[in-house]
Design a protein around this nucleic acid. Structure first.
Lengths: 233, 233
DNA sequence: GCATCGATCGATACACTGTATCGAGTCATA
DNA sequence: TATGACTCGATACAGTGTATCGATCGATGC
């Protein structure tokens, strides 16, 4: 019999557009999709609608897997922690590795700079990397372990955050790193010309400019040297 | 003659509700209003609409003073930098003061933890506090100044960020600090019970728990000790 | 003194967000 | 087979940042 709506017989009617069978979902799939979006276009590009669309689903479907956007962000952060895998022998090597692998992970996922440290990290991967570090600090006096690890973490997160901030600013102005630092932006030029920040101007103009990695490493060494002094005692 | 609409004479008609003459606006007024909102209800409570309403204005009016929400946030951060006023004699005192006044400012404006370090700080107040610090490091070798100050800033920002994160978590769970730390949350209890994180569990259970201020100070001392070693050379 | 033009300002409207609500549809049971 | 409970996710809502462009107002020319 002809279709009620079109009056056409089955054979004349085109098949419906091939709707892929509702993709099976999982927390992991959702988080992966969100991370893809964030890696490509930044955290602002992560909306429940876009994530759902990427998975060929409707937004509310996600709520069976997560309890809201905040939880999705938590899961994303823990996924980054999975890439932070400190290793090495002895406290100094492990702490160095902790800081540098944090740095690498955040370089790979710049958006993580806006989330790391923003709320307590209690996900399985975060705990796992914590466990690795703690285990490697077995020969350090127990009461000193937490403050030491906290300090290294605080430094790493703060330092990486500034690195990312600068990187974004450079990208926004379209300048590469050297031109940016050399020109300091016309704004800084003018500001320093006012003479209100002489010491700052001197440092910026006359001091050697280390690259991001050297700066990071240097600060980390300061911190570890200070820790070494206490631990040795 | 009677009013066309109501048919009432002037004397019968009530005066229009006393609309205060459109409040004069300024960047400062706008930023102050935004900060009041953020202090009271967090960064999420800062919307151009709410800020405008607080100033008895309509949202688009703000666009004559700022170029978008991002700029408003930048101004808010610089306002916080106005409260970071390092002081003291000699490099160590000044750097200590820098870190601790950063900490105090962020405690007063918790939302600042989410913004500080998130983009280059080039506002007048940020530069001013930078100038103070640089000036006080006059006797430090020029090439070492930037790395040293960067490291202290990175540490302070990262450390304060975690402090705020914990404070928020405690507030969210309604627990006071001691109960939170003692109970560790039922979740951590259960997680540690699995035995997958023995070293972590040991540290959390058996190590002494310093309060936030002690922890902050201790990490800062590690860093400054390490710096002292390099500078002295 | 009046009409016209130009620029300025901010109300309206749009596209998008996270998520509460609740009706449709499904399954197990009587 | 009828009925009920339950689950799922489409719809709808309240809110966001901001582009657009019509109303308004001052200055200018006659």
């Amino acid at each position: 019999m002809p279709c009620i709506v079109t009056g056409m017989l089955v054979w004349e009617r085109p098949e419906p557009p091939e709707r892929p069978v509702p993709a099976p979902l999982s927390r992991e799939r959702i988080v992966r999709a969100a991370i893809r979006l964030a890696d490509a276009d930044g955290l602002d590009a992560v909306s429940l609608r876009k994530v759902a669309t990427a998975l060929d689903a409707r937004p509310m479907r996600l709520y069976s897997y997560i309890d809201g956007k905040e939880e999705l962000l938590d899961l994303m952060v823990d996924a980054v922690h999975a890439e932070i895998r400190p290793s090495g022998e002895g406290w100094r090597e492990v702490l160095t590795s902790l800081a540098e692998s944090t740095r690498h992970a955040v370089h790979k996922h710049e958006w993580a700079a806006d989330l790391l440290g923003g709320r307590p990290q209690l996900g399985p991967h975060a705990l796992a990397s914590g466990e690795t570090v703690m285990a490697a600090l077995g020969d350090v006096e127990l009461d000193a372990v937490m403050p030491v690890v906290s300090a290294v973490n605080a430094y790493a997160i703060g330092a990486v955050r500034r690195e990312v901030a600068e990187r974004r600013a450079e990208r926004a102005t379209g300048m590469d790193q050297e031109r940016w630092q050399a020109a300091l932006g016309p704004y800084l030029q003018r500001t320093f010309a006012t003479g209100r920040f002489p010491a700052l101007a001197t440092v910026v103009h006359d001091a050697a400019h280390l690259d991001a990695e050297e700066t990071f490493r240097m600060g980390l060494d300061f911190l570890l040297d200070g820790i070494a002094a206490r631990i040795a005692r």
